[in-house]
Simulated assay, not measured.
Amino acid sequence: MLGFAAPLVLASGSPRRRELLSGAGLRFAVRPADIDETPLPGEAPANYVRRLSIEKTDASMASPLASPVEIVLAADTTVDVNGEILEKPLDADDAFRMLRMLSGRSHLVHTGVTVSVPIAGVRRSSTIVVTTEVTFADLEDAAIDWYLETGEAMDKAGAYGIQGAAGAFVEKINGSVTNVIGLPLAETLRLLRDATSA
């Protein structure tokens, strides 16, 4: 779909983001950025993912493997329940707690996406935050236990992956589905197009 004069680097180890970008026909290298993802005191969830996407981009560009001509794309996703950030669960009990919080209510999923491009020798970055509202059905404890046994919960923000078995928990989605998976694809492609054509 999109081709670039410069190489594209994804500053994320997320297999979901790789699959989404590959499915859109993009060719890219993967160079995960290792940063401290601890929320700041009182930090709003949308501000949190914005900050982390910027920091991941900066960390990737600071790598000894980085090239001054490459395009860097980074993203971070979190689940927001009344302003509380739900990141990846610490253990099965934490995952159960999160899924119990999500049961029978709506929550928000925010993804911050940052693109950094070299233009005429100057690096310019653009950042967006995309938000999707997700409504879960009422979950019985047995349903949560069943889901935890699938093993899907442990490496996902909010302890669920909508593209997997947890899709059975979702009653309604308002906004981008790919955003809930980990990367708002249409908005990311638009950001890349705009950044590289500026």
Rank of each mutant, 00 (worst) to 15 (best):
M1R: 09
G3Q: 14
F4M: 07
F4E: 11
A5P: 00
L8T: 04
V9H: 13
A11K: 05
A11I: 00
L20Q: 06
L20G: 03
S22M: 08
S22Q: 15
S22V: 04
A24R: 00
G25Y: 03
L26K: 05
R27H: 13
R27K: 14
R27Q: 14
F28S: 11
A29D: 15
V30I: 15
V30G: 09
P32N: 06
P32T: 12
A33P: 08
I35W: 00
I35N: 00
D36W: 02
E37K: 12
E37L: 10
T38E: 15
T38H: 08
P39D: 12
P39S: 10
E43H: 01
P45M: 13
A46R: 13
A46Y: 06
Y48S: 09
R51N: 13
I54Q: 15
K56M: 04
A59W: 00
A59T: 05
M61R: 15
A62S: 15
S63P: 11
A66Y: 04
A66R: 04
S67D: 12
S67C: 11
V72Q: 01
V72M: 07
A75K: 08
D76S: 00
T78E: 13
D80Y: 01
N82V: 07
G83F: 01
G83K: 05
I85G: 09
I85H: 03
L86E: 10
K88V: 02
P89I: 01
D91Y: 03
A95T: 04
F96S: 12
R97G: 03
R100H: 12
S103Y: 08
S103V: 08
R105C: 13
S106F: 05
S106L: 02
H107K: 00
G112A: 11
T114N: 13
T114M: 04
T114V: 01
T114A: 07
T114K: 03
V115S: 06
S116M: 11
P118A: 12
I119G: 02
A120Q: 14
V122I: 09
V122H: 15
R124V: 15
R124P: 00
R124A: 13
S125M: 08
T127C: 15
I128S: 02
V130K: 04
T132M: 03
V134N: 03
V134D: 08
V134C: 03
V134K: 02
T135G: 00
T135H: 07
A137G: 01
D138N: 11
D138M: 08
E140L: 12
D141K: 00
D141T: 12
A143N: 02
I144Q: 06
I144V: 15
D145V: 10
D145R: 15
Y147D: 01
L148P: 04
T150Q: 09
M154Q: 10
D155G: 05
D155Q: 02
A159C: 11
Y160P: 00
G161Y: 07
G164R: 01
G164N: 09
A166Q: 04
A166Y: 02
E171S: 14
N174S: 14
N174R: 14
N174G: 03
S176C: 15
T178L: 09
G182K: 05
P184E: 08
E187V: 03
T188K: 10
L189E: 07
R190D: 14
L192R: 09
R193I: 07
T196K: 01
S197P: 04
A198W: 12
